[in-house]
Amino acid sequence: MRYCAILAAVIWAGLATAQGWEDRQVFGTGDAPLRVLSSTDTSFFRPIIEDFIATSPEVSVEYLVTGTADLDVLFRADPTAYDVVISSAMDLQLKLANDGFAAQLADVDHPDWAEWHDSLFAFTTEPAAIVINRAALGDLPVPRTRQDLIELMRAHPATFDGRVGTYDVRQSGLGYLFATQDARASETYWRLIEVMGRMDARLYCCSGAMIDDLIAGDLVVAYNVLGSYAEGRSETEAALTVILPSEFPTTMMRTALVSRQASDRPVAEAFLRHILALQATGDATRFPLPPLAAGDGPVIGLNPALMTYLDKMKRDTFIGEWEDAIVQDD
């Protein structure tokens, strides 16, 4: 245990200095801020946090943004350092709860399918999308399905070569979740990845970076981009088209948990309850993320099966196959 503690301290110290947070902001003026570790861009959470601080002004919130895979490593290394963990990687979150990192909350009025073990709570439903730069695509038809996209790329390699992007599943927890769920649903995924590999696909850590490159025109198409991010940007950037693949949509739920070792459990719980309550209002200005929706097709289920692809052997096998398909440099 001592070894672990020292290791954790070393890692933490290393991360604290070397950790380049994607974003780090403090809301409110309290002395001991509530530390929220999140994979969600601050822009989406700013109204939610401000709303929370308005109800309890003595509280301040430190909002730390990093990637889903990083987030899991950081939190496991020092669960006392963070009070609330928010991530789009449902599998990693579920494993955190399963491993006993999450506190159980009593009497939360929340749909049963959107919570697990009274400790992990989903508060959005967000589909994975194909996003296209309309201008870069030119006169080519807009693909509606994965199959369309495969055929389009095969027919017009010149347009797509080096200009297709997707998640690097080795870096991104969410990318890995989307990839494993796609692979579970259909063999089409592997053919798509193979074709993308042949097009010399560019691999990304996050949806934001893919959208940036799409807008810049460096990418024609990005696969498995977070729909919500793309929608948010496509409203301002008319060039982007967001397509939800019609044959089988992959929809994830963003989840939050309260650390069992949170320094201030009551405030952390209040914050989580506040998120769930705001989600339920359906007010887009107070809650800019897509709220929970049961009706829009199948959603990745919150259950222990999510841990299947987190199994070391399964992961090694999957990453191996994925690399074989997409990385064709050597």
């Binding site: 709860a97 399963n98 006993g100 919570e115 697990w116 073990h117 009274d118 579970r184 289920g301 259950n303 222990p304 099966a305 841990m307 299947t308 199994d311 052997m313 399964k314 096998t317």
Partner: peptide, 25 residues
């Protein structure tokens, strides 16, 4: 030795009370 076990192996352990699941191979 490798085990490529199916998704159903763990999903069949889903319960109403959201029981936690552990395994070792």
């Amino acid at each position: 030795v490798s085990l490529d076990f199916p998704y159903s192996s763990l999903s069949m352990l889903t319960t109403d009370a959201d029981d936690r699941v552990f395994y070792a191979i």
